[in-house]
């Protein structure tokens, strides 16, 4: 079992994801350079956070045209697991692997800090180590995490159980006050219809050790390994 972490020019959470998988999970992991067209040998590919290509024009807009993204699209097509975190989520939206788009945070400011997330679907490759309804604590750090999709897309996402996480308060209530960026329906993470591609704005790789304030993020990576191990 091996994880691959894509490195775009401007990725800055690539090393964090690497450490979380290697040290937190204890699973082999390698970087994948954006110029490569070969992602053979990997079981799960992580598109990490950061500011790929400076996020100039729109977050993730230029990164999706990297050579590696063709390979990632094929990998996903074949059923490979792809997890986009923060900027990686934005890239997945831009390249169409996931529906919707990101707007600027409604505060118009970058937001960094811990948020509470309600697990909406625990039956996916990325959430099976959690329980539905559980509240986990993860950091966010983004300026464009205000999830938008038209009402039909939102309806489809909800009906198919493709909303993975929603921003909530400490007791699991999904409220406007708990929404850090204005996302529709407090959406923090979603997956594709097949369930093998997921994107989330919060950073599980920043919460893999107690010393960092939370180890809840490790459950996301554990879900992946238990899914792959039981396959």
């Amino acid at each position: 079992m091996k994880f691959g972490i894509v490195v775009f020019p401007g990725s800055n959470c690539d090393a964090d994801a690497y450490y979380a998988v290697r040290d937190g999970l204890g699973v082999p992991v390698e970087y994948i350079w954006h110029g490569t067209r070969d992602v053979g040998g990997f079981d799960c590919i992580v598109l990490p956070g950061g500011f790929a290509y400076g996020d100039y024009l729109r977050a993730g807009a230029i990164a999706r045209f990297s050579p590696v993204m063709d390979a990632v699209l094929e990998f996903a097509e074949r059923g490979g697991l792809v997890l986009g975190i923060c900027n990686g989520f934005q890239v997945l939206l831009e390249c169409g692997l996931l529906p919707g788009a990101m707007l600027r945070n409604d505060s118009l400011q970058f937001r960094c800090g811990y948020v509470n997330l309600k697990v909406e679907n625990a039956a996916t490759p990325f959430t099976n180590a959690l329980e539905r309804g559980r509240v986990i604590r993860l950091p966010i750090a983004h300026g464009e995490g205000n999830y938008y999709a038209d009402s039909q897309t939102l309806g489809n996402l909800q009906a198919a159980g493709r909303v993975l996480f929603r921003y909530c308060d400490g007791e699991g209530n999904v409220t406007a006050e708990a929404n850090p960026n204005g996302s529709l329906l407090n959406i923090a993470g979603i997956c594709n219809s097949r369930g093998n591609v997921a994107g989330m704005m919060p950073h599980p790789e920043r919460a893999y050790q107690r010393i960092l304030g939370s180890a809840d993020g490790l459950e996301i990576f554990r879900s992946v390994t238990s899914f792959l191990g039981g396959r």
């Binding site: 979380a20 920043r206 960092l212």
Partner: peptide
């Protein structure tokens, strides 16, 4: 002020 700064990237910040 500091919620606008990414103070956790690099995953080494123990006291925020």
């Amino acid at each position: 002020v500091y919620r606008q700064y990414d103070h956790m990237v690099q995953t080494n910040t123990v006291v925020l």
